[in-house]
């Protein structure tokens, strides 16, 4: 199946080459350079990825949507969202897309917490992620063991139905919400997330919540 791997990238030059080379065997690599000011773009081009360039930084959600639309246009059958900072493991892509290949799911989410060996920092896990997961499950009526894990796969059907309008980090909640609203079949698969830094803190979590709620008014 024609698989596209979308890597949104903002000043991730340090990891980009390694990440692109690691995912290359699994599909067509599309790097969305979200207005980077370092040499991310040159690195991506020399690593022979397709590079889409945002002239201004618009946020991870915006970059993913650009990648999704490109993949849709180029006839992708499966799209994988993958982080540019080396957090995700390319070797887990086959496991992530397997439920789509078997026709068991339209969307597959990676979950840090389905595995016994999870590397999430203690405070991040219990102060930020667990409350966020609870909140997500209660609010959206889903049953997921993880939230805001950027490693996911979408079938073409899901790709056609899910339009990301949240430019910032709230896109992760938006995708879950739209999966639910469109009645798409979803599945979780255990994945490993390695931490280079803490990532989204508590303030970031609140901003995601605010963006998501305010988004309701402009996109009813």
């Amino acid at each position: 199946m024609k698989t596209f791997i979308i890597i949104p990238c903002y000043n991730d030059a340090a990891f980009l080459e390694r990440v692109i080379n690691s995912v290359k065997p699994y599909g067509q690599v599309v790097v969305v350079d979200d207005g980077s000011t370092d040499n991310s773009r040159e690195i991506a081009q020399s690593a022979q990825a397709i590079v889409l360039k945002h002239r201004l930084n618009r946020g991870q959600g915006a970059a993913l949507e650009t990648g999704d639309l490109y993949a849709l246009r180029e006839g992708a059958e499966i799209v994988v969202h993958f982080d540019a900072d080396g957090q995700h493991q390319a070797a887990e892509i086959p496991r992530l897309i397997e439920p789509i290949l078997k026709g068991e799911a339209n969307v597959v989410f990676g979950s840090r917490f389905l595995k016994s060996d999870d590397f999430t920092p203690f405070l991040k896990k219990w102060l930020i992620l667990k409350p966020a997961i609870l909140f997500q499950n209660l609010l959206l009526g889903v049953k997921l063991t993880d939230a805001h894990n950027g490693f996911r796969a979408l079938s073409r059907k899901a790709l056609e139905l899910i339009r990301i309008t949240q430019d910032g980090m709230a896109h992760a909640s938006e995708i879950v919400e739209k999966v639910k609203l469109n009645g798409l079949k979803y599945r979780e698969v255990p994945v490993t997330v390695l931490y280079n830094d803490f990532g989204q803190g508590f303030g970031g979590g609140l901003k995601i919540l605010a963006d998501w709620l305010f988004g309701k008014f402009n996109n009813p």
Partner: peptide, 23 residues
């Protein structure tokens, strides 16, 4: 707030359009 949010989204649309056209 809503107006700014809307304008931000419109900027994103333009940036996206240009990115896909460049490609």
């Amino acid at each position: 707030y809503l107006k700014i949010d809307k304008q931000q989204k419109e900027i994103t649309k333009i940036i996206r359009h240009l990115a896909l056209k460049d490609e």
